[in-house]
Computed example of a mutant assay.
Amino acid sequence: MTIHDRATNPADRAPHWAAHLRDPTARERVLRLLAEHTRHYESGAQFINEDDTLNAIVCVLSGWVSISKVSETGQIQIIDFGMPGDLYDLTSADGHTTPLNVTVVSNATVASVPRALWRSLVIDYPEIERLSRDHAASAMSRVSERMLRLGKGSAEERIAYGFLELGVRLADSSGQRSNCYDVPLTQLLLAEWLGLSSVHVCRTLQSLHTRGAVEVSGHMKICVMDADALTKIAGVSFDTLAQEISPPH
């Protein structure tokens, strides 16, 4: 496991939302602040642990991370996947510890900006406050939608919803919507995200494939073959979901 103090590619330091900041001074300060607090982590690195002291705002600049809880028996529940551009305040109500674990799914560049410095930005530039609020709201919306399926939905509903959520988020970060997309996930990670066993995920993917709804190949390419069937199984449309969980630019 290797951790580098700085990202080697300057492009990694520019989250997609920074380009939409109207104030050029705000944009410059944000980019400088992120660059000054950036580290690169290799896949498998767990760089935030439950009960750690954390006085920072976390921004994923490249790669994917998983945000999770672990039970006393070692069962992992992934709460969310952090993708490029995502902002998180992972501090608990006490204001200085975190109740979560953050693990790198694919090589990732992450900025951990001290809370005091981020608060100064928010005070100076109201649009950054709006940006932080929008990211928190979108995260809450997608976790709420997923929780509904985890608590009340079948395995097919969970996976159908999960694939739609991934499609929305990937379209949001790339600016283009595609029926096929690559994700750095395994069936085990899908299982830990959707509250299923790996065996159940495998069987359900086969069922969805047989029904002509999705096709999953490689490590891991997801193709939505019948969007209408998938949205019907999930109980939500792509456009409605996009409105709920995509932070506005």
Rank of each mutant, 00 (worst) to 15 (best):
Q243D: 09
S237L: 09
E145A: 03
P184R: 05
S141G: 06
A136L: 11
S154L: 07
V224H: 06
I245R: 01
S141W: 01
Q206P: 05
I222K: 01
E165A: 15
L208M: 12
K221H: 13
L188N: 08
D134S: 12
E145V: 01
A136I: 08
T186A: 10
L230H: 07
S141L: 04
M225V: 04
G153F: 02
D228S: 08
T210I: 10
A191P: 14
A229G: 05
V168Y: 02
R169N: 14
L230K: 05
L190R: 03
L131K: 04
D172C: 02
L196W: 15
G175F: 09
Q243E: 11
V168W: 02
G218L: 06
D134I: 03
F163I: 06
A229Q: 07
G162F: 15
A139N: 11
L205W: 08
D134Y: 09
A155R: 07
R146K: 13
Q176S: 15
L205T: 10
I159M: 09
F163A: 01
S173I: 15
Q243G: 01
L170K: 06
V143Y: 02
D239T: 15
R146Q: 13
S138G: 13
Q206G: 12
N179L: 06
L170Y: 00
T186Q: 09
L230R: 04
E192N: 15
H219G: 10
F238E: 08
C202E: 13
G195I: 05
T204R: 06
R203K: 14
R130V: 12
S132H: 07
R149H: 10
R211I: 03
I222V: 15
A171M: 10
N179V: 01
V224N: 10
A234V: 10
G162T: 08
A137Y: 00
N179D: 15
Q187V: 04
S217H: 06
M225I: 03
D226L: 00
R158C: 01
T231C: 09
D182K: 11
G212N: 13
P126N: 05
R142Y: 00
D226I: 00
T231P: 01
S144R: 13
T204H: 11
D226M: 02
L205F: 13
T210N: 14
H200K: 12
A160L: 07
M147N: 15
E127L: 05
G162R: 13
A242R: 04
M225L: 15
I245T: 01
E192V: 01
T186E: 13
L205M: 12
P184M: 08
Q176T: 14
C180A: 15
Y161S: 03
A155N: 12
V183W: 10
L188P: 02
I222E: 09
V224M: 09
A137T: 08
P126L: 07
H135K: 04
Q176P: 03
A160D: 10
I128F: 04
L148Q: 02
A139C: 09
L241T: 03
L205V: 13
G212P: 12
Y181W: 11
L230V: 10
F163C: 01
V168I: 10
H200N: 07
E215L: 05
L170E: 14
S207E: 11
S144Q: 12
L148S: 00
V214P: 06
G218I: 03
R169E: 15
G151I: 06
L230P: 09
H219M: 12
L208H: 07
